[in-house]
């Protein structure tokens, strides 16, 4: 084997493993629908063509952007509320004792069950959709922040106390960084729940958005269009996970480094 081939093999292996299964699945899909006239299960070529026709055009501005806007705003709001409230609860023992049973109660309520109530309270506009997303997304961030803030190594807490690192400085340089691995785990959950709730909130009394469009396609028997919407949702999920992975590596680079060293 030449040196070039030897350096090329691992790269090809990585690319092959990452892309292999999607390619195989699409091929299988193509074969299974080959020559089939099934109305509900169009082939990949049809869906791909519909995908371009449906989403590269006015629908992008009318449906995709509003959806992404609601998702982004809902997730951002959940992260901010979750971290602020979680830090307050985690650092204040009496507040935690007061709120913990209530938090467990509200967390257990499925956000979808709140949609009719929120519609009554907030109407059918964007604020209702935002409230649905936040009502489900805030919990993983909040509860993980509480645990993370409480779980600061006592040696580190004593070190900070003995060097008189208090208040905002301790929050910024000790408590939040120490909690950040847990907070990031909460945000990861928050993102996937947020995508689901975005679609669900748009299925009720909406006039735009991916959820609205999907229901519309289904009811109009525009099956290829419906499938293309589902593919689009999956792709958004992949992009969101990729962005999260990038941010996670930057924010927690010390944590990943530390764990790598610990593993030896």
């Amino acid at each position: 084997m030449t040196a070039l081939a030897r350096s090329l093999v691992p790269t090809l292996r990585t690319v092959g493993l990452a892309a292999g299964l999607p390619v195989l699945l699409v091929l299988g899909w193509g074969l299974a629908t080959q020559g089939s006239q099934s109305f509900y299960f169009p082939g990949p070529a049809t869906v791909a063509r519909t995908f371009v026709d449906t989403w590269f055009g006015p629908a992008f501005v009318q449906d995709v952007l509003p959806s992404l806007g609601r998702f982004g705003a809902g997730v951002a709001l959940s992260i901010v509320i979750g971290i602020v409230a979680g830090t307050a609860i985690g650092t204040t023992p009496w507040l935690r004792e007061l709120l913990e049973p209530m938090l467990e109660f509200f967390r257990a309520v499925p956000p979808v069950a709140l949609v009719p109530v929120l519609m009554l309270l907030l109407g059918i506009g964007d604020s209702m959709k935002l409230a649905v997303i936040v009502s489900g997304c805030v919990w993983p961030v909040l509860l993980n922040t509480v645990e993370g803030v409480r779980g600061v190594d006592p040696v580190l807490t004593e070190t900070s106390r003995s060097y008189r690192v208090h208040g905002a400085l301790a929050l910024r340089y000790v408590i939040l960084p120490a909690a950040s691995p847990r907070i990031m785990a909460g945000i990861r959950l928050c993102l996937s729940i947020g995508l689901i709730l975005m679609v669900i909130s748009e299925m009720f009394a909406a006039s735009s958005g991916l959820g609205y469009r999907l229901v519309y396609f289904q009811r109009s028997f525009m099956i290829a269009e419906m499938w293309s919407g589902i593919v689009l949702l999956g792709l958004i999920g992949v992009v969101v996970a990729t962005i999260f992975g990038f941010v996670d590596r930057r924010v927690l680079h010390w944590y990943h480094g530390l764990r790598e060293v610990a593993r030896g």
Binding site: V155, L156, T159, P177, Y255
Partner: peptide, 14 residues
């Protein structure tokens, strides 16, 4: 100033 026994846990890893 205090220097603790558990150096690994008394330094801020971040």
């Amino acid at each position: 100033a205090v220097v603790f026994q558990e150096y690994g846990r008394s330094l801020y890893p971040w």
